[in-house]
Design a protein around this nucleic acid. Structure first.
Lengths: 213, 213
DNA sequence: CCGCATCCTCATGGATACTG
DNA sequence: CAGTATCCATGAGGATGCGG
């Protein structure tokens, strides 16, 4: 049987850079895969584990489509196949960050039984804390669900270093609800402290983020 | 028969502001409806006409969902029902603009038989020309498919005035391919002029957008 | 006309099983 | 580990109907 490939059947067919972007990354799961790869390349099963709920056939099909459109590329490492963003694909950080900022009010409903990956903080924190700046530069360690995330802030703004070898001066331990609640403005520092879910030198938070309340 | 509402069946169920945003506006057509409403309120049939290919039941369902999520609101004008963005919904301009910029390279393939609405320029031009600035301020009229779009540029950047009463000093006449091709960087000014599809005082383009080549 | 609702068909998404 | 194959549920698209 002939296998007919009709990948562009669902195009919006509009002469518009926005809808053409959606033609390429607008399908379900596509932008989530990109977000997953923003902190660094991953293997197939890592992607599948991180994106709870994605069907394996869909993941395979999306990866194929994203590769065809030059958004990701397959790398053959010694450990197996690695999926990585192309330079153009990595530029999706901006649209993703913009949507993350827009969606911040939706964090007020709290975490239901929703899944969470510390890896997401590498994208979410710089997106939500944009505007925060510090001179001299400051490094803040966040211990979230056993994973250490190092938030680096200098004059140019916040970012999360993928692989940080040295231990930051300050390390706070907090639950995902607290970290994202604070960053999204859905929670005040006082609320977080009084709830007892924020441990360490919390004064540094007030100094680093005067806007956080 | 009981009509079961399962609007959140397809939620990603991730504790993440980005995926929660997609839960709300990520479904097909949703962001296109928002883009359509960014320049100003529209009626049901205007939306349907502008979004070629949308099924009428889908449009009705999307409008209901967007209203429930407080992204749009129904207004009863003397002419009938008007759909308008809420303040929060209007803030989707940023994510939409970011995706439009990311998708600019996709305009290089040219317009196929794709549809086009001059209304889209009100969103696309400020998004694609971000960074352009002019002091003193300058106004540039673009006559595209019979519709006059007034592009206003000052120190703070470019924008398109929805209803501009006075006629701008300079009016260029151009096809959609030329206007968007230039703005997206898929076309040079010389190419546009030599193709004969750009009429008027084209020197102003070079002065207003030195980055356009 | 305008603003939808209903009905039908087929493409896409989702869950599970299975394989090189 | 990195996917394919299969089957079922759901959503999209198009035509048409219908009350205001």
């Amino acid at each position: 049987m002939e296998k007919i490939n009709r990948s562009s059947t669902r195009s919006y067919r509009q002469f518009c850079s926005f809808t053409r972007a959606l033609d390429v990354v607008g399908d379900r799961w596509n932008l989530l895969i990109v977000r997953e790869l923003l902190p660094g390349p991953l293997r197939y099963n890592d992607l599948k584990a991180s994106l709870a709920g994605i069907a394996t056939n869909l993941l395979a099909e999306r990866l194929r489509s994203l590769e065809e459109h030059l958004i990701i590329e397959r790398r053959l490492g010694d450990t197996g196949v690695l999926y990585a963003l192309t330079p153009w694909g990595a530029e999706l950080r901006e649209p993703i960050a913009a949507l993350a900022r827009w969606g911040a009010p939706l964090m007020k409903t709290g975490r239901g039984g929703d899944s969470f990956q510390p890896r997401w903080l590498a994208v979410a924190l710089p997106a939500l804390l944009r505007g925060a700046a510090a001179a001299p530069a400051l490094e803040l360690g966040l211990q979230v669900e056993g994973v250490l995330v190092v938030l680096h802030i200098d004059r140019s703004g916040p970012r999360v270093d993928a692989q940080s070898n040295r231990l930051p001066d300050t390390v706070l331990t907090a639950a995902p609800e607290i970290v994202l609640g604070l960053a999204a403005g859905a929670l005040t520092i006082d609320q977080a402290i009084s709830a007892g879910h924020l441990q360490g030198d919390t004064e540094i938070l007030r100094r680093a983020f005067p806007a956080l309340r």
